[in-house]
Design a protein around this nucleic acid. Structure first.
Ligand SMILES: NC(=O)c1ccc[n+]([C@@H]2O[C@H](COP(=O)([O-])OP(=O)(O)OC[C@H]3O[C@@H](n4cnc5c(N)ncnc54)[C@H](O)[C@@H]3O)[C@@H](O)[C@H]2O)c1
Ligand SMILES: NC(=O)c1ccc[n+]([C@@H]2O[C@H](COP(=O)([O-])OP(=O)(O)OC[C@H]3O[C@@H](n4cnc5c(N)ncnc54)[C@H](O)[C@@H]3O)[C@@H](O)[C@H]2O)c1
Lengths: 211, 211
DNA sequence: TATATATTGTGAATATATTCACAGCGTGAT
DNA sequence: ATCACGCTGTGAATATATTCACAATATATA
Protein backbone atom coordinates (compact mmCIF):
# COMPACT_ATOMS: atom_id res chain seq x y z
CA UNK A 1 0.00 0.00 0.00
CA UNK A 2 2.29 2.77 -1.22
CA UNK A 3 -0.27 5.53 -1.79
CA UNK A 4 -1.85 6.93 1.34
CA UNK A 5 -5.55 6.03 1.27
CA UNK A 6 -7.82 8.53 2.98
CA UNK A 7 -9.54 7.09 6.02
CA UNK A 8 -12.85 8.60 4.98
CA UNK A 9 -12.68 7.04 1.55
CA UNK A 10 -12.27 3.60 3.04
CA UNK A 11 -15.38 4.13 5.13
CA UNK A 12 -17.38 5.28 2.13
CA UNK A 13 -16.21 2.38 0.00
CA UNK A 14 -17.54 -0.03 2.59
CA UNK A 15 -20.81 1.87 2.51
CA UNK A 16 -20.98 1.91 -1.29
CA UNK A 17 -20.41 -1.79 -1.42
CA UNK A 18 -23.29 -2.49 0.89
CA UNK A 19 -25.60 -0.25 -1.10
CA UNK A 20 -24.47 -1.80 -4.37
CA UNK A 21 -25.02 -5.30 -3.02
CA UNK A 22 -28.56 -4.31 -2.14
CA UNK A 23 -29.14 -3.00 -5.63
CA UNK A 24 -27.81 -6.19 -7.15
CA UNK A 25 -29.53 -8.57 -4.79
CA UNK A 26 -32.86 -6.91 -4.19
CA UNK A 27 -33.53 -4.62 -7.11
CA UNK A 28 -31.68 -6.58 -9.78
CA UNK A 29 -30.16 -3.43 -11.22
CA UNK A 30 -26.99 -3.86 -13.29
CA UNK A 31 -25.69 -0.29 -13.62
CA UNK A 32 -25.66 2.86 -11.48
CA UNK A 33 -24.72 6.45 -12.13
CA UNK A 34 -22.61 8.30 -9.64
CA UNK A 35 -25.52 10.53 -8.69
CA UNK A 36 -27.74 7.56 -7.87
CA UNK A 37 -25.19 5.93 -5.65
CA UNK A 38 -24.46 9.32 -4.14
CA UNK A 39 -28.08 9.82 -3.22
CA UNK A 40 -28.27 6.45 -1.47
CA UNK A 41 -25.02 7.08 0.35
CA UNK A 42 -25.85 10.64 1.33
CA UNK A 43 -22.86 12.19 -0.41
CA UNK A 44 -22.32 14.17 -3.62
CA UNK A 45 -21.85 12.63 -7.04
CA UNK A 46 -18.43 14.22 -7.30
CA UNK A 47 -17.47 12.50 -4.08
CA UNK A 48 -18.46 9.14 -5.46
CA UNK A 49 -16.48 9.68 -8.63
CA UNK A 50 -13.47 10.88 -6.66
CA UNK A 51 -13.58 7.76 -4.50
CA UNK A 52 -13.77 5.57 -7.60
CA UNK A 53 -10.77 7.38 -8.97
CA UNK A 54 -8.86 6.61 -5.80
CA UNK A 55 -9.38 2.88 -6.16
CA UNK A 56 -8.79 3.16 -9.90
CA UNK A 57 -12.18 1.98 -11.03
CA UNK A 58 -13.65 3.41 -14.21
CA UNK A 59 -17.26 3.57 -15.25
CA UNK A 60 -18.58 4.44 -18.65
CA UNK A 61 -20.42 7.58 -19.59
CA UNK A 62 -23.98 6.86 -20.64
CA UNK A 63 -24.07 3.59 -18.70
CA UNK A 64 -22.46 4.44 -15.40
CA UNK A 65 -20.78 1.85 -13.21
CA UNK A 66 -21.25 -1.87 -13.77
CA UNK A 67 -22.39 -2.85 -10.32
CA UNK A 68 -21.16 -6.40 -10.20
CA UNK A 69 -17.74 -5.43 -11.47
CA UNK A 70 -17.57 -2.49 -9.06
CA UNK A 71 -18.47 -4.61 -6.05
CA UNK A 72 -15.70 -6.94 -7.13
CA UNK A 73 -13.27 -4.03 -7.42
CA UNK A 74 -14.14 -2.64 -4.02
CA UNK A 75 -13.75 -6.11 -2.58
CA UNK A 76 -10.34 -6.46 -4.15
CA UNK A 77 -9.40 -3.19 -2.60
CA UNK A 78 -10.92 -3.57 0.86
CA UNK A 79 -10.82 -7.26 1.59
CA UNK A 80 -8.07 -9.65 2.38
CA UNK A 81 -7.54 -12.26 -0.32
CA UNK A 82 -8.25 -14.99 2.22
CA UNK A 83 -10.19 -14.97 5.46
CA UNK A 84 -9.44 -12.07 7.76
CA UNK A 85 -9.89 -13.30 11.31
CA UNK A 86 -11.29 -11.02 14.02
CA UNK A 87 -11.35 -11.47 17.80
CA UNK A 88 -13.70 -9.83 20.29
CA UNK A 89 -12.58 -9.08 23.83
CA UNK A 90 -15.19 -8.50 26.53
CA UNK A 91 -18.27 -10.66 26.18
CA UNK A 92 -20.63 -8.29 28.02
CA UNK A 93 -23.90 -6.81 26.81
CA UNK A 94 -22.39 -4.97 23.90
CA UNK A 95 -19.95 -7.74 23.03
CA UNK A 96 -22.72 -10.32 22.84
CA UNK A 97 -24.86 -8.06 20.65
CA UNK A 98 -21.95 -7.70 18.24
CA UNK A 99 -21.16 -11.42 18.25
CA UNK A 100 -24.76 -12.22 17.48
CA UNK A 101 -24.98 -9.63 14.76
CA UNK A 102 -21.88 -10.70 12.86
CA UNK A 103 -22.41 -14.44 13.21
CA UNK A 104 -22.43 -15.99 9.78
CA UNK A 105 -22.84 -12.63 8.08
CA UNK A 106 -19.58 -12.27 6.22
CA UNK A 107 -17.50 -15.16 4.96
CA UNK A 108 -14.28 -13.19 4.63
CA UNK A 109 -14.38 -11.15 7.80
CA UNK A 110 -15.34 -13.35 10.69
CA UNK A 111 -15.17 -13.15 14.46
CA UNK A 112 -13.33 -16.38 15.13
CA UNK A 113 -12.79 -16.08 18.86
CA UNK A 114 -14.09 -14.19 21.88
CA UNK A 115 -12.30 -13.60 25.17
CA UNK A 116 -13.41 -12.63 28.66
CA UNK A 117 -11.77 -12.63 32.05
CA UNK A 118 -14.92 -13.86 33.72
CA UNK A 119 -14.26 -17.57 34.36
CA UNK A 120 -17.97 -18.33 33.91
CA UNK A 121 -17.72 -17.20 30.31
CA UNK A 122 -14.65 -19.16 29.29
CA UNK A 123 -15.69 -22.28 27.46
CA UNK A 124 -19.15 -21.04 26.52
CA UNK A 125 -20.25 -20.52 22.94
CA UNK A 126 -22.16 -17.40 21.88
CA UNK A 127 -23.67 -17.41 18.40
CA UNK A 128 -21.28 -20.08 17.19
CA UNK A 129 -18.29 -18.23 18.57
CA UNK A 130 -16.21 -19.88 21.26
CA UNK A 131 -15.31 -17.79 24.30
CA UNK A 132 -11.83 -18.32 25.70
CA UNK A 133 -10.13 -17.34 28.94
CA UNK A 134 -7.74 -14.40 28.72
CA UNK A 135 -4.62 -16.47 29.32
CA UNK A 136 -5.37 -18.44 26.17
CA UNK A 137 -5.34 -15.29 24.09
CA UNK A 138 -1.78 -15.20 22.72
CA UNK A 139 -1.95 -18.82 21.67
CA UNK A 140 -5.40 -18.64 20.09
CA UNK A 141 -4.71 -15.38 18.27
CA UNK A 142 -1.58 -16.75 16.76
CA UNK A 143 -3.10 -20.09 15.81
CA UNK A 144 -6.09 -18.45 14.15
CA UNK A 145 -3.97 -15.71 12.64
CA UNK A 146 -6.03 -12.89 14.08
CA UNK A 147 -5.02 -9.40 12.94
CA UNK A 148 -8.11 -7.40 13.91
CA UNK A 149 -9.91 -7.06 17.23
CA UNK A 150 -13.02 -5.55 18.75
CA UNK A 151 -12.61 -4.19 22.26
CA UNK A 152 -15.74 -4.20 24.42
CA UNK A 153 -14.27 -4.36 27.91
CA UNK A 154 -14.78 -1.66 30.55
CA UNK A 155 -12.78 1.52 30.10
CA UNK A 156 -10.38 0.74 32.90
CA UNK A 157 -9.29 -2.53 31.29
CA UNK A 158 -9.06 -1.39 27.70
CA UNK A 159 -5.43 -0.24 27.67
CA UNK A 160 -4.18 -3.49 29.17
CA UNK A 161 -6.20 -5.46 26.67
CA UNK A 162 -4.89 -3.32 23.81
CA UNK A 163 -1.30 -3.91 24.95
CA UNK A 164 -1.90 -7.64 25.00
CA UNK A 165 -3.44 -7.53 21.55
CA UNK A 166 -0.57 -5.56 20.12
CA UNK A 167 1.94 -7.98 21.52
CA UNK A 168 -0.03 -10.83 19.96
CA UNK A 169 0.21 -9.27 16.51
CA UNK A 170 -3.12 -7.46 16.17
CA UNK A 171 -2.79 -4.42 13.88
CA UNK A 172 -6.33 -3.06 13.67
CA UNK A 173 -8.80 -2.45 16.48
CA UNK A 174 -12.36 -1.32 16.80
CA UNK A 175 -12.56 0.18 20.27
CA UNK A 176 -15.84 0.79 22.10
CA UNK A 177 -14.26 1.68 25.42
CA UNK A 178 -14.24 5.42 26.11
CA UNK A 179 -10.49 5.80 26.38
CA UNK A 180 -7.77 6.91 24.04
CA UNK A 181 -5.68 3.80 23.49
CA UNK A 182 -1.93 4.26 23.32
CA UNK A 183 -0.61 1.97 20.64
CA UNK A 184 2.41 1.98 18.32
CA UNK A 185 2.06 3.91 15.08
CA UNK A 186 1.89 0.64 13.20
CA UNK A 187 -1.47 -0.16 14.79
CA UNK A 188 -4.74 1.36 13.65
CA UNK A 189 -7.50 2.17 16.13
CA UNK A 190 -11.03 3.04 15.15
CA UNK A 191 -12.92 4.48 18.09
CA UNK A 192 -16.67 4.15 18.51
CA UNK A 193 -17.64 6.38 21.33
CA UNK A 194 -21.35 5.87 21.80
CA UNK A 195 -21.66 8.31 24.66
CA UNK A 196 -20.00 11.12 22.78
CA UNK A 197 -22.13 10.43 19.73
CA UNK A 198 -25.27 10.55 21.81
CA UNK A 199 -24.18 13.84 23.30
CA UNK A 200 -23.60 15.20 19.81
CA UNK A 201 -27.06 14.14 18.71
CA UNK A 202 -28.53 15.74 21.83
CA UNK A 203 -26.57 18.94 21.34
CA UNK A 204 -27.57 19.41 17.74
CA UNK A 205 -31.15 18.49 18.56
CA UNK A 206 -31.24 21.56 20.79
CA UNK A 207 -29.30 23.64 18.31
CA UNK A 208 -31.74 22.91 15.51
CA UNK A 209 -34.77 23.36 17.70
CA UNK A 210 -33.57 26.82 18.69
CA UNK A 211 -33.11 28.02 15.11
CA UNK B 1 -27.06 29.23 18.28
CA UNK B 2 -25.98 31.90 15.79
CA UNK B 3 -22.35 30.89 15.21
CA UNK B 4 -21.85 27.59 13.39
CA UNK B 5 -20.24 25.14 15.80
CA UNK B 6 -18.02 22.53 14.16
CA UNK B 7 -19.35 19.03 14.55
CA UNK B 8 -15.91 17.73 15.44
CA UNK B 9 -15.46 20.28 18.19
CA UNK B 10 -18.70 19.18 19.84
CA UNK B 11 -17.47 15.60 19.86
CA UNK B 12 -14.15 16.59 21.39
CA UNK B 13 -15.80 18.74 24.04
CA UNK B 14 -17.79 15.74 25.17
CA UNK B 15 -14.56 13.77 25.31
CA UNK B 16 -12.70 16.49 27.20
CA UNK B 17 -15.45 16.68 29.75
CA UNK B 18 -15.27 12.99 30.48
CA UNK B 19 -11.50 13.10 30.85
CA UNK B 20 -11.70 16.17 33.07
CA UNK B 21 -14.32 14.54 35.26
CA UNK B 22 -11.98 11.61 35.74
CA UNK B 23 -9.16 13.93 36.73
CA UNK B 24 -11.37 15.70 39.21
CA UNK B 25 -13.03 12.62 40.64
CA UNK B 26 -10.23 10.10 40.64
CA UNK B 27 -6.98 11.99 40.67
CA UNK B 28 -8.15 15.06 42.55
CA UNK B 29 -6.30 17.40 40.23
CA UNK B 30 -7.51 20.99 40.09
CA UNK B 31 -5.77 22.37 37.00
CA UNK B 32 -4.66 21.06 33.61
CA UNK B 33 -2.52 22.43 30.84
CA UNK B 34 -3.68 22.11 27.27
CA UNK B 35 -0.91 19.62 26.49
CA UNK B 36 -1.94 17.32 29.34
CA UNK B 37 -5.56 17.24 28.29
CA UNK B 38 -4.42 16.85 24.69
CA UNK B 39 -2.39 13.79 25.54
CA UNK B 40 -5.31 12.14 27.29
CA UNK B 41 -7.63 12.97 24.43
CA UNK B 42 -5.22 11.96 21.70
CA UNK B 43 -5.14 15.35 20.01
CA UNK B 44 -2.68 18.24 19.86
CA UNK B 45 -2.41 20.98 22.45
CA UNK B 46 -3.25 23.58 19.82
CA UNK B 47 -6.44 21.68 19.06
CA UNK B 48 -7.49 21.81 22.69
CA UNK B 49 -6.83 25.52 22.92
CA UNK B 50 -8.70 26.15 19.69
CA UNK B 51 -11.71 24.23 21.01
CA UNK B 52 -11.64 26.25 24.21
CA UNK B 53 -11.56 29.40 22.15
CA UNK B 54 -14.66 28.25 20.31
CA UNK B 55 -16.67 27.90 23.49
CA UNK B 56 -15.13 31.09 24.85
CA UNK B 57 -13.39 29.60 27.83
CA UNK B 58 -10.10 31.09 28.99
CA UNK B 59 -7.39 29.50 31.05
CA UNK B 60 -4.48 31.23 32.62
CA UNK B 61 -0.87 30.94 31.60
CA UNK B 62 1.24 29.34 34.31
CA UNK B 63 -1.76 27.55 35.83
CA UNK B 64 -3.69 26.22 32.85
CA UNK B 65 -7.40 25.50 32.94
CA UNK B 66 -9.35 25.31 36.19
CA UNK B 67 -10.91 21.91 35.77
CA UNK B 68 -14.05 22.37 37.79
CA UNK B 69 -14.83 25.65 36.11
CA UNK B 70 -14.08 24.21 32.68
CA UNK B 71 -16.34 21.20 33.20
CA UNK B 72 -19.04 23.66 34.21
CA UNK B 73 -18.39 25.71 31.06
CA UNK B 74 -18.51 22.72 28.76
CA UNK B 75 -21.72 21.63 30.46
CA UNK B 76 -23.24 25.04 29.92
CA UNK B 77 -22.33 24.78 26.30
CA UNK B 78 -23.26 21.16 25.60
CA UNK B 79 -26.11 20.39 27.93
CA UNK B 80 -29.69 21.45 28.06
CA UNK B 81 -30.48 23.60 31.08
CA UNK B 82 -33.05 21.04 32.20
CA UNK B 83 -33.37 17.31 31.51
CA UNK B 84 -32.95 16.33 27.89
CA UNK B 85 -35.12 13.30 27.27
CA UNK B 86 -34.03 10.52 24.91
CA UNK B 87 -36.01 7.65 23.43
CA UNK B 88 -34.70 4.35 22.07
CA UNK B 89 -36.48 2.53 19.28
CA UNK B 90 -35.79 -1.17 18.73
CA UNK B 91 -35.24 -3.13 21.92
CA UNK B 92 -33.12 -5.87 20.36
CA UNK B 93 -29.65 -7.03 21.34
CA UNK B 94 -27.97 -3.72 20.70
CA UNK B 95 -30.86 -1.67 22.06
CA UNK B 96 -30.86 -3.58 25.32
CA UNK B 97 -27.10 -3.19 25.71
CA UNK B 98 -27.47 0.56 25.28
CA UNK B 99 -30.41 0.80 27.68
CA UNK B 100 -28.46 -1.07 30.31
CA UNK B 101 -25.36 0.99 29.81
CA UNK B 102 -27.03 4.38 30.09
CA UNK B 103 -29.37 3.47 32.95
CA UNK B 104 -28.80 5.91 35.79
CA UNK B 105 -25.57 7.16 34.29
CA UNK B 106 -26.39 10.75 33.47
CA UNK B 107 -28.96 12.81 35.27
CA UNK B 108 -29.40 15.36 32.47
CA UNK B 109 -29.43 13.09 29.45
CA UNK B 110 -31.66 10.14 30.13
CA UNK B 111 -33.35 7.45 28.07
CA UNK B 112 -36.88 7.94 29.29
CA UNK B 113 -38.72 5.53 26.99
CA UNK B 114 -38.08 2.57 24.71
CA UNK B 115 -40.26 1.36 21.85
CA UNK B 116 -40.55 -1.88 19.95
CA UNK B 117 -43.08 -3.31 17.55
CA UNK B 118 -42.81 -6.75 19.10
CA UNK B 119 -45.96 -7.09 21.23
CA UNK B 120 -44.06 -9.26 23.70
CA UNK B 121 -41.81 -6.34 24.52
CA UNK B 122 -44.46 -3.71 25.06
CA UNK B 123 -45.08 -3.27 28.76
CA UNK B 124 -41.78 -4.75 29.88
CA UNK B 125 -39.14 -2.79 31.74
CA UNK B 126 -35.45 -3.03 30.82
CA UNK B 127 -32.98 -1.44 33.21
CA UNK B 128 -35.61 0.83 34.68
CA UNK B 129 -36.78 1.94 31.27
CA UNK B 130 -40.33 1.19 30.22
CA UNK B 131 -40.87 -0.30 26.78
CA UNK B 132 -43.92 0.93 24.89
CA UNK B 133 -45.75 -0.27 21.81
CA UNK B 134 -45.11 1.69 18.62
CA UNK B 135 -48.60 3.16 18.44
CA UNK B 136 -48.02 4.86 21.79
CA UNK B 137 -44.99 6.66 20.45
CA UNK B 138 -46.41 10.06 19.42
CA UNK B 139 -48.23 10.44 22.68
CA UNK B 140 -45.36 9.35 24.90
CA UNK B 141 -42.75 11.41 23.05
CA UNK B 142 -44.83 14.50 23.38
CA UNK B 143 -45.72 13.94 27.01
CA UNK B 144 -42.10 13.31 27.98
CA UNK B 145 -40.84 16.07 25.71
CA UNK B 146 -38.39 13.83 23.86
CA UNK B 147 -36.17 15.62 21.35
CA UNK B 148 -33.46 13.01 20.81
CA UNK B 149 -33.69 9.36 19.77
CA UNK B 150 -31.54 6.28 19.34
CA UNK B 151 -32.49 4.06 16.42
CA UNK B 152 -31.64 0.38 16.83
CA UNK B 153 -34.21 -1.24 14.56
CA UNK B 154 -33.32 -3.35 11.50
CA UNK B 155 -32.17 -1.43 8.44
CA UNK B 156 -35.41 -1.99 6.55
CA UNK B 157 -37.47 -0.33 9.26
CA UNK B 158 -35.21 2.58 10.07
CA UNK B 159 -36.58 5.11 7.57
CA UNK B 160 -40.16 4.57 8.68
CA UNK B 161 -39.13 4.94 12.29
CA UNK B 162 -37.19 8.10 11.48
CA UNK B 163 -40.21 9.59 9.72
CA UNK B 164 -42.36 8.86 12.74
CA UNK B 165 -39.79 10.41 15.06
CA UNK B 166 -39.53 13.55 12.97
CA UNK B 167 -43.26 13.98 12.93
CA UNK B 168 -43.28 13.61 16.71
CA UNK B 169 -40.79 16.45 17.12
CA UNK B 170 -37.47 14.63 17.46
CA UNK B 171 -34.60 16.79 16.17
CA UNK B 172 -31.51 14.70 16.90
CA UNK B 173 -30.92 11.02 16.19
CA UNK B 174 -28.23 8.50 16.84
CA UNK B 175 -28.70 5.90 14.13
CA UNK B 176 -27.21 2.41 14.28
CA UNK B 177 -29.07 1.05 11.28
CA UNK B 178 -26.90 0.85 8.17
CA UNK B 179 -28.99 3.17 6.02
CA UNK B 180 -28.77 6.81 5.10
CA UNK B 181 -31.83 8.36 6.71
CA UNK B 182 -33.66 11.02 4.75
CA UNK B 183 -34.73 13.71 7.15
CA UNK B 184 -35.45 17.44 6.88
CA UNK B 185 -32.48 19.77 7.18
CA UNK B 186 -33.69 20.80 10.62
CA UNK B 187 -32.96 17.33 11.96
CA UNK B 188 -29.49 16.12 12.89
CA UNK B 189 -28.46 12.50 12.33
CA UNK B 190 -25.34 10.94 13.80
CA UNK B 191 -24.62 7.61 12.16
CA UNK B 192 -22.82 4.79 13.92
CA UNK B 193 -22.07 2.20 11.35
CA UNK B 194 -20.44 -0.64 13.21
CA UNK B 195 -19.96 -2.79 10.13
CA UNK B 196 -18.20 -0.06 8.20
CA UNK B 197 -16.01 0.73 11.16
CA UNK B 198 -15.02 -2.89 11.51
CA UNK B 199 -14.15 -3.02 7.83
CA UNK B 200 -12.00 0.06 8.26
CA UNK B 201 -10.16 -1.51 11.16
CA UNK B 202 -9.66 -4.68 9.12
CA UNK B 203 -8.46 -2.76 6.08
CA UNK B 204 -5.90 -0.73 7.96
CA UNK B 205 -4.79 -3.78 9.88
CA UNK B 206 -3.74 -5.26 6.54
CA UNK B 207 -2.35 -1.97 5.32
CA UNK B 208 -0.11 -1.57 8.34
CA UNK B 209 0.96 -5.17 8.32
CA UNK B 210 2.07 -4.86 4.71
CA UNK B 211 4.20 -1.78 5.33
C1' DT C 1 8.60 44.65 43.91
C1' DA C 2 11.05 42.89 39.96
C1' DT C 3 12.22 38.93 37.15
C1' DA C 4 12.25 34.66 34.67
C1' DT C 5 9.49 31.41 32.51
C1' DA C 6 6.16 28.29 30.68
C1' DT C 7 1.72 28.62 29.02
C1' DT C 8 -2.22 30.80 26.87
C1' DG C 9 -4.83 32.84 22.82
C1' DT C 10 -4.85 33.49 18.19
C1' DG C 11 -3.64 35.22 13.25
C1' DA C 12 -1.48 33.06 9.68
C1' DA C 13 0.06 28.99 7.38
C1' DT C 14 -0.66 24.54 6.13
C1' DA C 15 -3.02 20.25 5.33
C1' DT C 16 -6.90 17.75 4.20
C1' DA C 17 -11.46 17.12 2.22
C1' DT C 18 -14.94 18.34 -0.77
C1' DT C 19 -17.02 20.49 -4.67
C1' DC C 20 -16.94 22.85 -9.09
C1' DA C 21 -16.93 22.82 -13.79
C1' DC C 22 -15.90 21.24 -18.06
C1' DA C 23 -13.35 18.57 -21.76
C1' DG C 24 -13.84 14.22 -23.64
C1' DC C 25 -16.18 10.16 -24.49
C1' DG C 26 -19.24 6.08 -25.14
C1' DT C 27 -23.73 4.96 -26.14
C1' DG C 28 -28.42 4.77 -27.88
C1' DA C 29 -31.11 6.92 -31.26
C1' DT C 30 -31.77 7.78 -35.95
C1' DA D 1 -22.64 5.85 -40.06
C1' DT D 2 -23.43 9.80 -37.74
C1' DC D 3 -24.95 12.56 -34.12
C1' DA D 4 -26.49 14.50 -29.78
C1' DC D 5 -26.60 13.80 -25.13
C1' DG D 6 -25.54 13.07 -20.41
C1' DC D 7 -22.23 11.00 -18.00
C1' DT D 8 -17.40 10.21 -16.41
C1' DG D 9 -12.75 11.64 -14.94
C1' DT D 10 -10.16 15.12 -13.15
C1' DG D 11 -7.45 19.70 -12.58
C1' DA D 12 -8.52 23.61 -10.24
C1' DA D 13 -11.06 26.05 -6.80
C1' DT D 14 -13.01 26.17 -2.56
C1' DA D 15 -14.12 24.87 2.11
C1' DT D 16 -12.97 22.96 6.30
C1' DA D 17 -9.81 21.37 9.84
C1' DT D 18 -5.56 21.39 12.02
C1' DT D 19 -1.10 23.05 13.25
C1' DC D 20 2.46 26.57 13.61
C1' DA D 21 4.53 30.12 15.88
C1' DC D 22 4.85 33.88 18.72
C1' DA D 23 3.31 38.09 21.34
C1' DA D 24 0.95 38.69 25.56
C1' DT D 25 0.62 37.36 30.18
C1' DA D 26 -0.05 35.45 34.79
C1' DT D 27 2.35 33.50 38.40
C1' DA D 28 6.05 31.54 41.36
C1' DT D 29 10.23 32.91 43.12
C1' DA D 30 13.62 35.74 45.16
N1 LIG E 1 -23.26 -0.89 26.05
C1 LIG E 1 -23.27 0.36 25.63
O1 LIG E 1 -24.26 0.87 25.14
C2 LIG E 1 -22.06 1.21 25.74
C3 LIG E 1 -22.16 2.59 25.53
C4 LIG E 1 -21.00 3.37 25.61
C5 LIG E 1 -19.79 2.77 25.88
N2 LIG E 1 -19.73 1.42 26.09
C6 LIG E 1 -18.46 0.83 26.39
O2 LIG E 1 -18.36 -0.45 25.81
C7 LIG E 1 -17.66 -1.32 26.69
C8 LIG E 1 -18.50 -2.54 26.98
O3 LIG E 1 -19.77 -2.16 27.47
P1 LIG E 1 -20.80 -3.24 28.01
O4 LIG E 1 -22.08 -2.52 28.22
O5 LIG E 1 -20.83 -4.43 27.14
O6 LIG E 1 -20.17 -3.63 29.41
P2 LIG E 1 -20.32 -5.02 30.22
O7 LIG E 1 -19.96 -4.72 31.62
O8 LIG E 1 -21.67 -5.60 29.95
O9 LIG E 1 -19.25 -5.98 29.57
C9 LIG E 1 -17.90 -5.93 29.83
C10 LIG E 1 -17.32 -7.34 29.70
O10 LIG E 1 -15.90 -7.27 29.73
C11 LIG E 1 -15.41 -8.31 30.58
N3 LIG E 1 -14.10 -7.90 31.09
C12 LIG E 1 -13.83 -7.04 32.08
N4 LIG E 1 -12.50 -6.88 32.23
C13 LIG E 1 -11.92 -7.68 31.32
C14 LIG E 1 -10.58 -7.94 30.98
N5 LIG E 1 -9.55 -7.34 31.61
N6 LIG E 1 -10.33 -8.81 29.98
C15 LIG E 1 -11.35 -9.41 29.34
N7 LIG E 1 -12.64 -9.19 29.61
C16 LIG E 1 -12.93 -8.33 30.59
C17 LIG E 1 -16.46 -8.47 31.64
O11 LIG E 1 -16.39 -9.78 32.22
C18 LIG E 1 -17.74 -8.26 30.82
O12 LIG E 1 -18.20 -9.48 30.30
C19 LIG E 1 -17.33 -0.50 27.91
O13 LIG E 1 -16.04 0.06 27.78
C20 LIG E 1 -18.32 0.63 27.86
O14 LIG E 1 -17.82 1.81 28.46
C21 LIG E 1 -20.84 0.63 26.02
N1 LIG F 1 -25.74 -5.59 17.05
C1 LIG F 1 -24.71 -5.19 16.31
O1 LIG F 1 -23.56 -5.43 16.63
C2 LIG F 1 -24.90 -4.40 15.08
C3 LIG F 1 -23.83 -4.20 14.19
C4 LIG F 1 -24.03 -3.46 13.02
C5 LIG F 1 -25.26 -2.91 12.79
N2 LIG F 1 -26.28 -3.10 13.66
C6 LIG F 1 -27.59 -2.52 13.38
O2 LIG F 1 -28.24 -2.11 14.56
C7 LIG F 1 -29.63 -2.38 14.46
C8 LIG F 1 -30.08 -3.26 15.62
O3 LIG F 1 -29.31 -4.43 15.66
P1 LIG F 1 -29.65 -5.61 16.69
O4 LIG F 1 -28.52 -6.56 16.63
O5 LIG F 1 -30.03 -5.04 18.01
O6 LIG F 1 -30.95 -6.26 16.00
P2 LIG F 1 -32.13 -7.09 16.69
O7 LIG F 1 -32.81 -7.83 15.63
O8 LIG F 1 -31.61 -7.81 17.88
O9 LIG F 1 -33.11 -5.97 17.25
C9 LIG F 1 -33.99 -5.23 16.46
C10 LIG F 1 -35.20 -4.85 17.31
O10 LIG F 1 -36.02 -3.94 16.60
C11 LIG F 1 -37.38 -4.32 16.74
N3 LIG F 1 -38.10 -3.80 15.59
C12 LIG F 1 -38.14 -4.29 14.33
N4 LIG F 1 -38.89 -3.51 13.54
C13 LIG F 1 -39.35 -2.51 14.31
C14 LIG F 1 -40.17 -1.38 14.06
N5 LIG F 1 -40.67 -1.13 12.84
N6 LIG F 1 -40.43 -0.56 15.08
C15 LIG F 1 -39.94 -0.80 16.29
N7 LIG F 1 -39.14 -1.84 16.60
C16 LIG F 1 -38.86 -2.68 15.61
C17 LIG F 1 -37.34 -5.82 16.82
O11 LIG F 1 -38.51 -6.31 17.46
C18 LIG F 1 -36.08 -6.06 17.64
O12 LIG F 1 -36.38 -6.04 19.01
C19 LIG F 1 -29.82 -3.02 13.09
O13 LIG F 1 -30.18 -2.01 12.16
C20 LIG F 1 -28.47 -3.54 12.75
O14 LIG F 1 -28.25 -3.56 11.34
C21 LIG F 1 -26.12 -3.83 14.79
Amino acid sequence: MNVQIPDKTVGRLSLYRRLLSNLLGIEKVKFVFSHQLAKDAGVTAAQVRRDMMIIGYSGSPKRGYAIEELVESIGQFLDAPDLQAVALIGVGNLGRAILTYFAGRRPNLRIVAAFDNDPNKAGTVISECRCYAMQEMPEVLEKKNVTTAIITVPAGQAQDVADLLVSSGVRGMLNFAPVNLRVPASVYVEDMDITTSLEKAAFFARCRTAS
